[in-house]
C-alpha cells in the first residue's frame, strides 16, 4: 500500500472558490439552532462528495437525520451506538470481496463513519481501535460536542475539565467534570494509521481539506472535529463559530495533522488568547474560579508544548 504522503502527491486542495456545491447531507434534518456538529457533518460530507457511503453511530446526528425522513442523499446505515467502526469495516470488507470477485464495480465509493464523542471515546473505543488496527480503508470522523448531548448533556470522557453536565454537576465538593479530556486524536495516532487530523468548523476550508485528504489516502483515517453544542454548552446559538474559533486561538483545541506518523501543526498560534476568554463563551464553565482557570491554563500550555515537541521530533529537517 502506498504511503499517505504518496497518495497526497497530486492532492487538489479545496479553496473558498472551489467549495463543492454537492450536499450529500441535505435538508430535512432536525438539529438544534446553531448546532456546530451538524455544520461540521455537512461540511465533511461536501468534502467527501456523492461517492460517500456513510455509517452513523447512534447519537444526535443519527436521530436528527433519520426521523420521519432521511437527510442523507448518499447510502447511509445506522446500526447501534458503539459499533460504527465495526459496521464500516464490514461495509469495506464486503465491497472489497465483491469488487475482487467482479460482482460490483470499483466506483470509488468512500466509506465514512460518523460518531459522537461518547460513541468514539467511551462505548465505541474498542470497535474503533479494532477497525483502525485491522487497516480497513475507511475514514472515521468523531464529531466531538464534549458530552452525551442526545440523552441530555451527560459527561463523557471527552468532556473537558471543569465543565458542568447533568452527571458532572458542580456542587459543594465538586467543580463539575473533575477529569482531563481524553486525547482521542493521540489514541488514534498511536495506531500508526496513515492519517489523523483535528478540525474546527471555524476553519471550514481547512476542515474540508482534511476530510478530503482522509478519504484520498488508502487505509484508515481518523478526524476529530470540535463541534459546538449551544444547547449543551449553555451558549447562544449564534456564537457557535466564535466558540469554535476561540477554542483554537486559546490552544485548548490545537489544529494538527499526523501524516504517516509525522505531526504537522496546521494552525500555529503565535498570539494565543487566554483560556479564560474561551471558557467565558459558555455557561457550562461559569462556576469556575480564578484558580480553576489558572489550572486549566497551565495544563493547556503543557499539552501545547508537548504537541510542539512531537512536531519537532517527527520533522527533524524542519
Amino acid at each position: 500500500m502506498i504511503s499517505a504522503a504518496e497518495a497526497l502527491q497530486d492532492f487538489k486542495k479545496i479553496t473558498p472558490k472551489t467549495i463543492p456545491l454537492v450536499e450529500p447531507f441535505s435538508k430535512g434534518h432536525r438539529a438544534c439552532q446553531g448546532c456546530g456538529e451538524v455544520l461540521a457533518l455537512r461540511l465533511a460530507a461536501k468534502a467527501v462528495g456523492m461517492d460517500m457511503i456513510a455509517v452513523s453511530a447512534t447519537g444526535c446526528m443519527e436521530i436528527i437525520s433519520s426521523s420521519y425522513q432521511t437527510a442523507w442523499e448518499t447510502p447511509w446505515i445506522h446500526v447501534a451506538f458503539e459499533n460504527a467502526a465495526a459496521v464500516a469495516s464490514g461495509v469495506e470488507a464486503g465491497r472489497k470481496a465483491l469488487i475482487r470477485k467482479g460482482r460490483i464495480k470499483d466506483n470509488g465509493s468512500k466509506i465514512v463513519a460518523f460518531a459522537g464523542d461518547g460513541a468514539t471515546a467511551d462505548i465505541g473505543l474498542q470497535a474503533l481501535s479494532g477497525a483502525l488496527e485491522r487497516g480497513h480503508d475507511f475514514t472515521y470522523i468523531c464529531l466531538d460536542n464534549e458530552a452525551y448531548m442526545n440523552t441530555g448533556i451527560q459527561r463523557s470522557s471527552s468532556t473537558p475539565f471543569g465543565a458542568m453536565t447533568t452527571t458532572s454537576p458542580p456542587g459543594k465538593i465538586s467543580k463539575g467534570q473533575m477529569t482531563w479530556k481524553k486525547n482521542m486524536p493521540m489514541i488514534a495516532a498511536a495506531h500508526n494509521i496513515p492519517y489523523v487530523a483535528t478540525a474546527s468548523p471555524a476553519w471550514h476550508v481547512d476542515l474540508m481539506n482534511k476530510v478530503k485528504k482522509a478519504v484520498t489516502i488508502p487505509g484508515p483515517a481518523y478526524i476529530h472535529i470540535y463541534s459546538p453544542c449551544p444547547t449543551g454548552w449553555r451558549c447562544p446559538p449564534e456564537t457557535s463559530i466564535e466558540t469554535a474559533r476561540k477554542v483554537v486561538q486559546s490552544k485548548v483545541f490545537p489544529l494538527f495533522e499526523v501524516i504517516d506518523g509525522q505531526f504537522i501543526l496546521t494552525r500555529d498560534i503565535k498570539k494565543p488568547i487566554p483560556v479564560e476568554e474561551y471558557l467565558k463563551t459558555q455557561r457550562r464553565f461559569s462556576h469556575l474560579g480564578p484558580e480553576d482557570i489558572a489550572y486549566i491554563q497551565k495544563r493547556v500550555d503543557a499539552d501545547w508544548d508537548r504537541l510542539l515537541k512531537l512536531v519537532q521530533a517527527t520533522n527533524p529537517e524542519a
Binding site: A85, G90, V91, E92, A93, G94, A97, Q126, A127, G130
Partner: peptide, 19 residues
C-alpha cells in the same frame, strides 16, 4: 474482529454492502 459485538456489527455492514 476484536469482539463478537464487532463480529456481528461487521457482518451487518458486509451484508448491507451486498456480500
Amino acid at each position: 474482529v476484536e469482539s463478537e459485538h464487532s463480529a456481528m456489527s461487521c457482518c451487518v455492514g458486509s451484508s448491507a454492502a451486498g456480500a
